[in-house]
Design a protein around this nucleic acid. Structure first.
Lengths: 183, 183
DNA sequence: ACCAGGTGAGACAAATTTGTCTCACGAGAT
DNA sequence: ATCTCGTGAGACAAATTTGTCTCACCTGGT
């Protein structure tokens, strides 16, 4: 029976998210295949990580497209983005810790495209008066990534409920911790 | 001349934050010492990581003590905490990615102590009416760690200015992205 | 001058991981 | 029934990393 490449990547992501130092053998066993087969599909560990990077970027781009960042208010668009990106959160949490991907000067073009699109969303929110202007869109973007990673880890460890994922991130990012006075 | 153990740990943290897969040889060279000397001070890679964990916990505890989390408003205390914890941010960013530290059931007791203290701060803010109650103290705590890590990485990559560290984290965490209407 | 302690450089074996290969097996197609 | 393709299992060498050891050197104190 032929191996489902996508399923292998997803189980690899799940394992590597928990244990970034997992060997090719462990990755193979986690996917339920032999190391030989894993090597037939991915030339080596580098190729595997690169494939995971591709998958992560692709899932993020899908999420961005589905979130229609240019429509409605920036706040609503941001909530949609967080909701749509949740399935990719675990993979994303792994990729951001894989600093091997960023240590060489030539990082994947997909990340800058994503950064630009998300940054543009925050900029739109600032220009429309929704968002504060004393924090930069770049920081908002980085903070979004950081919160997604933190939430993914907290869910994995069982410290917070998975169903609260979207609410936790979006509410904190948009409204912060301060109690809002009823209008 | 005797080696400054603390300085070795700090340079190791700086290197491992950028490249988590650095070998003992690279760590030694980064510290300006030989691999033999590095081994004389830290029995192996595990011992080195554990020592970094100890250092990180200790620095966080120092920061917590200096921030006097029980005094003034929770918001003011939180701002002090972020400010005091900034020197440990890089080390912290490395430690949270070192999931080796958490994969065994017996994690360092120091982390739970820190979590408890920080969680208590957020709970105090909720009970005093400063902070919203639809997000849990646990999530606030995780989000703080996530934002600290994200900020540390962004500063390392030059995407944001180091001098904005405290302001970025505290403002986003406390006030969120939404523009506040003048009272 | 002498000594003691700490260090650097290098050699070495052991352990681990990786990449490649061969061979046998089994499911599905013809 | 036969063929073919993909897979599992295992062997194997190469590369990497680690841990340990020895020896020479240097510096500070006596």
């Amino acid at each position: 029976m032929s191996v489902d490449r996508d399923q292998v990547l997803r189980s690899a992501a799940a394992l590597l998210t928990r244990k970034g130092s997992a060997t090719m053998d462990e990755v193979a066993r986690a996917a339920g295949i032999s190391r030989a087969t894993l090597h037939r599909h991915f030339a080596g560990r580098d190729a595997l990580v690169r494939a995971l990077e591709e998958l992560g970027i692709q899932e993020c781009e899908t999420a961005l497209a589905a979130a229609r960042l240019g429509e409605d208010s920036a706040e609503e668009a941001l909530r949609r983005l967080v909701k749509e990106i949740q399935p990719a959160a675990g993979l994303l949490a792994f990729l951001v810790t894989e600093n091997q991907l960023f240590e060489d000067d030539a990082q994947h073009e997909g990340w800058s495209r994503l950064d630009d699109n998300i940054g543009a969303l925050f900029r739109r929110g600032q220009e429309s008066g929704e968002f504060r202007i004393d924090l930069t869109p770049v920081w908002f973007t980085e903070a979004l990534y950081g919160l997604i990673g933190a939430a993914a880890w907290a869910v994995l460890d069982g410290r917070v409920a998975a169903k609260d994922f979207t609410h936790m991130i979006a509410e904190l990012l948009i409204g912060g911790a301060r109690r809002r006075v009823e209008p």
